[in-house]
Design a protein around this nucleic acid. Sequence first.
DNA 1: GAAGAAAAGTGCGTGCACGCAAGTTTGCGT
DNA 2: ACGCAAACTTGCGTGCACGCACTTTTCTTC
Lengths: 225, 225
Amino acid sequence: MTTRRTGLREQKKQATREALRAAALRLALERGPENVRVDDIAEAAGVSPRTYNNYFSSREQAIVAAVTGEREARVAEAVADRSADDGLAEAVIEAIVDQYTATGGPGRDALLLITTRPALRDTFVDAAAAVENPLADAIAERLGDTDPNTARVLAASVAAAVRVALEQWLGTTTEASTAGGLVVPSGSLPDLLRAALAPLTPALDAAERRAREGNARIRTAPPGR
Amino acid sequence: MTTRRTGLREQKKQATREALRAAALRLALERGPENVRVDDIAEAAGVSPRTYNNYFSSREQAIVAAVTGEREARVAEAVADRSADDGLAEAVIEAIVDQYTATGGPGRDALLLITTRPALRDTFVDAAAAVENPLADAIAERLGDTDPNTARVLAASVAAAVRVALEQWLGTTTEASTAGGLVVPSGSLPDLLRAALAPLTPALDAAERRAREGNARIRTAPPGR
DNA sequence: GAAGAAAAGTGCGTGCACGCAAGTTTGCGT
DNA sequence: ACGCAAACTTGCGTGCACGCACTTTTCTTC
């Protein structure tokens, strides 16, 4: 009942997905992303080109996925784990910071490659949006079943904040970098993430408080009046 | 100093952009979006196909843009106008609701068309992201120059909330519609928008309060300690 | 364990996005 | 007024995303 739908099917699927990721990253590092055609990736992974984009809907996705991995799921998991002890805001922030600082292991040079080419930067930033659904589930569970929409909105906001932090980190301010005045050049990613997420703390905490009151009112006693 | 960079140039640009929008919408309504090729739109607007996607990067964008118009800019403007009287959260929410309820005039049937075809629905929802930049500027101005990042994050969160509301409105819950249990089928768009934006109220108000304190501390008197 | 259903992989064709390198229009300086 | 520079447009070529129909593989059921 874990995650497998039928067993061998899912296994093979993940295998080819992983093969495509690996092949895409390897070829991109060898020749540079510009000189990698979809057919090459497919051939290197031993599948048809048509199969390739049954898995990825853009060439960049495959390369970026090799680095981002299953980060989204791990963020949600981390939130669920922390959920008992401290506040929702803190749990979410720390979970995200943890998962984004643990990026290093496999590909330092891969990250360099991604941050260099604009196309890859963009899809790397967009990949952050993938946390929304798992995170929404995690938050919803923590808030109880009261209003799942709040959880969705909060998760979406968190994802948006992460995107902003990544854009700043990569200097993709969309022409604003020279406009106003002094902007901190880069800063460390963890700091940027915390700074971007900080403004959402009131919303997260307020939602948690409302949820607690709502649950308490339901579970323990009817309202005073 | 208004918006024109050089005068005649910009004028012509907006003209062809508008021509493309109109042509795209008209053809889509006549034949259905499936039977409209990019070449047709370009021809109808009297420009080269290549020029067409100097303006729009996907066929759907042109059609959707004919309906969404310049909504983003108007939202930002509305926020700026309201900014004096009431709270930031209220100003933002009302500005958005206003602009999204004022959609009706030109194309009732166009909206029907958009909400029907999945591809158009998606780009319609994505179009909401365009409010982020103008809204960020508007919020930043209202918060004073303290930390423009907060403004960006808040604007991005608002955009995300709007997206969630639109997804719900269109029933694009990504397979979740049948999962949990009873979900409100549609509801009125204004209500959905307010509901989606409500969880962000604490964050908006907190940012405004912080900004006021910060500005007061700077403008009137040095801090007590 | 064999037949049938479901799902993943494949080949093909079509329309499209976009880089590049012209050609053409607009605006500005003198 | 004239010519130069920048902006916009255009044609062309290349890869690519994706729908569709079909084959192959895996799962289920009797």
